[in-house]
Structures are given as structure tokens and as C-alpha cells.
Amino acid sequence: MSMTVLPASSRVATPMVDPFGRTIDYVRVSVTDRCDLRCTYCMAERQTFLPRAELLSLEELDRLCSVFVGLGTRKLRLTGGEPLVRKGFIDLVARLSRHLASGALDELTLTTNGTRLAEHAEALAGHGVRRINVSLDTLDPAAYRRITRGGDLAKVLEGLAAARGAGIAIKINTVALKQDNGADLPAMIEWAHNLGMEITLIETMPMGEIEADRTGQFLSLSDVRRDLETRWTLTPLVRRTGGPARYARVEQTGGTVGFITPLTHTFCGDCNRVRVTCTGTLFLCLGQDDHADLRETLRAHTDDGPVAEAIRAAVARKPKAHDFRIGLDVAPAVRRSMSVTGG
């Protein structure tokens, strides 16, 4: 397949800046809404996925990502659903790696559930992927099967070993679930640190309609942190990675733990990112519905100029903050699920 090369003339030196003075240089792009797991807090057990014809092709994803790079994007994260289930995904990574080689892109990375990591880790490393995020909520095989509705923990652990062996740095993303893993979070942190991996804890986010009651599973990370501080010394770190986490070093393990708190503490003040779905919809905020349809513009023009203009126009109206709330009588902040938005 041919490779889309962004003309030098289309590169714009002026960075994208939103109405609140935030430079937007981090884009998360979903390559599929499909996933091989059905995590209870993420999607319905009988999830309806998009018709394949509605998804951007690999060539279109390459072109769109390249336009973002031309607009000053320095970090590109590929997500899903589960990105590794998308046929041809490694080919897309290979194409996009040219922006790493040219110096136009600082980092090309992905978020994965790890189930297919063992077979793809070497290829990812070979195409310049230096670190990845792996979503994993428990080390108990039975609990993992229950949370993911049938997943095999052994496959994920095999994938983690393969990625580490390929020289890829790993950050574990763990959703704090009061009933399923709340008591096991210290053990998760110790396990990750013993293997040289970072770990970030995440409050469950009210996105999309699911069968489960998120209220019963919600666990405040303020409470979790207080519990951790009775065990260990946590030293706050002044660190920004282009994401919403706030970090601390666990002095006793030497490792780093992050906290993402969309409900108990907003993280929007220095937001530098936008999300693009696998259908080419640009969402300006994870917890707001304002969006722009880039697919129509992408397909209507062979010239990248109109696509770049549409992106700039959308960023110019990026909202200040999300509006996540949780409760028995509170509807989800947005009706779309995380798997549709891009994890």
C-alpha cells in the first residue's frame, strides 16, 4: 500500500492553541471500536459495534494522523477498543514511524489490554514504540475473568513479559473498583514496581450506558491514597506526561504511582490533547459532546489543507473542562462509551 507523505509546505509552524491558551500537541486516535474483552465498567456484554464500512481505512488513518503531525502534534497514541485486533494495525504503526524518524513526532505509543501483545511486541519495538500503556485491573485470574467477562489473565502476563523483553517500557493502567479490586491495589502496585513497571490508578468514569451500577463500584482515589500513605511514604512528583495523572514516588519500592481523578479532582487545567474516533470524529474533550466530523472533509478533498483548517476550527472551540458526575440518579456525562471515544 502507498504511503501518504505530508508535503513540507503543509507543515504549520504555529502550534494549535485552544481558547484557554493551552497548546494542543497530543492526539489519541482510535483505530477500532472493537475489543476482545467486555470489561463490566467499560461496555455492555452484548455491545453493538460499528459497521466496518464506517471506519476510516488504514490509509485514511495514516493521512489524518499525518495532518495532525503537520499541525504540531508531538505525541500520538493509538487506541481502541483494542487496537491490536484491527487487521493491519502493525502496518499502520510502520507507516507512522516515519514521523519519528524525521523528528516531527516525539512519541508514537498505544494503549492495549495486552491480550495480543505477545505476538506483536517485537514488531512494535522495531517500529519505534518505546513505551505502552496496558490496562489491567487485577492479578487474580478468577477476578480477571469476571471483570473482563471471560478474559485469560495468562495471555496478558505473557504479553507483558514479551514487551519487557523487547525493551518496551510499560505503564499499567488500573481502574479502581470498590468491589472487585479495592483491597488488592497495594499488591498491584508492589507487583508492578517489582517488575520495573509504572502503574496509574484511575477512578471509574461515567461514560456510556452499561448494565452495571457504577455507583456501587466507585472508589475515591483520595481514600485510596490515604490508605497507601499508611503503608508507604509517597513523595509527590512535579511531572507532566501530556496526560491527566498526578504522580508520586513510593519511597519503599522506588517506583512511581499515578492517580487519575476525573470525579474527585478535575485534571483539565493543562489539558493538551484531543481524541479522534475510528470513524474520524474529533472529540475535543473526553467528557463533553462537542465534536467535528473530519471523515467527510478527509474524503471530499485530496488536498490536506481543508482537513487542517477543520481541525484548527474545532480546537478553537475546545471547552474548558469536562463535567463528570456519578450517582444513582445521575446520567452519564456522555452517552458514548470509552470504546467508541478512544481509550
Rank of each mutant, 00 (worst) to 15 (best):
S9R: 15
R11M: 14
P15H: 10
V17S: 12
P19M: 11
R22A: 03
Y26M: 07
V27R: 01
R28L: 04
L37W: 04
Y41V: 08
C42G: 04
A44C: 13
T48A: 13
E54L: 10
E60G: 08
E60R: 09
L61K: 06
L61C: 09
L64A: 09
T73Q: 11
R74K: 14
R86T: 09
L96Q: 09
D106P: 07
T109M: 03
A118K: 14
H127P: 08
H127F: 10
V129M: 01
I132K: 01
N133V: 03
S135D: 05
L136K: 12
T138D: 07
P141F: 07
R145H: 07
R145M: 02
R146W: 09
G150P: 09
G151R: 02
L153R: 13
L153N: 11
V156Y: 10
E158K: 13
G159D: 04
L160Y: 10
L160S: 09
A162I: 11
A163P: 07
A176G: 12
G182A: 12
D184K: 13
L185G: 00
L185S: 00
P186L: 14
A187P: 01
E190F: 07
W191F: 11
M197N: 02
I199P: 06
E211Y: 02
G216E: 11
L221H: 02
L228K: 02
W232L: 09
L237R: 15
P244H: 02
Y247M: 08
A248H: 15
T253N: 06
G258R: 06
F259L: 11
T261F: 08
L263C: 11
H265G: 03
H265N: 06
T266Y: 04
F267C: 04
C271M: 05
R273P: 08
T279E: 05
T281E: 15
A292D: 04
L294P: 00
T297Y: 03
T297V: 15
L298G: 02
L298M: 07
R299S: 12
T302I: 03
D303A: 14
V307A: 08
A308C: 10
A310K: 00
I311T: 05
G327C: 03
L328Y: 14
V334L: 11
S339L: 13
S339R: 03
T341M: 14
G342W: 07
G343H: 02
